[in-house]
C-alpha cells in the first residue's frame, strides 16, 4: 500500500515546536500533525484528509526549510 502514502511538507521555513500526532495516530481532516513556530506564532501542519500518521521525519526544536518533508501520512 506504499503508493497510498503521501508526504507532508512544511510550507514555510520554521522551527518544529511540537509533534502533536506521533506515528500511528489516527486523525480527522484538518487535525494537527505538527506545530511549527514562526514569528512567535504557532503554525499547525494539518492532515490533508482523514487518515493515519505513518512517520514523523523531524524532531522538536529542529529548523525546517520551506518544502521540507516533515511527515508521511496514509489517507
Amino acid at each position: 500500500m506504499a503508493e497510498n502514502i503521501v508526504t507532508i511538507r512544511s510550507e514555510i521555513g520554521a522551527l518544529v515546536w511540537k509533534i502533536a500526532a506521533p506515528a500511528g495516530t489516527a486523525l480527522a481532516e484538518d487535525d494537527t500533525i505538527i506545530i511549527l513556530e514562526s514569528m512567535k506564532m504557532e503554525i499547525p501542519i494539518m492532515a490533508p484528509h482523514a487518515g493515519t500518521v505513518v512517520e514523523i521525519l523531524v524532531t522538536e526544536g529542529q529548523q525546517v526549510e520551506e518544502g521540507q518533508a516533515v511527515a508521511t501520512f496514509r489517507p
Binding site: E11, I12, A14, S38, M39, K40, M41, I43
Partner: peptide
Amino acid sequence: DPFFYGGS
C-alpha cells in the same frame, strides 16, 4: 494569512 510566517 497568519498561516504563513504569522502574516509577516
